[in-house]
Amino acid sequence: MIPLSHYLLVSAVLFGLGTIGVVISRNLITILMSVELMLNAANLALISFARWHADPGGHVFVFIIFVVAAAEATVGLALVIAIFRRKNTVDVDGLNILKG
């Protein structure tokens, strides 16, 4: 039996890597993918806690996170397409029209 802390460690590393990806990358699509990575790290933590408390409610939470991730990905990608049509780039450093 693998201890709970192993799974939580993997979850923590994936979440941290997702954070790094969000902050350092300039490509909007890569940023969205890093957000998906962070959601997956949270999912892993939820599944392992569900297993360790023998409570399948955590699986339901993961199911709902799947739906939220799907909605987030579609809306985010639609925004990327809209930005690309208008500015002809997906570089976040080039997006400063809200800066005033």
Partner: peptide, 27 residues
């Protein structure tokens, strides 16, 4: 190669620092 993949060096080191601290904290 339309633009470089990463942001400015200052922001980049900040991001790696933030992620590293986060990993250590959660661990």
């Amino acid at each position: 190669d339309e633009f470089s993949a990463y942001r400015k060096p200052l922001l980049r080191s900040f991001g790696v620092l933030l992620g590293g601290i986060l990993i250590i904290e959660i661990s």
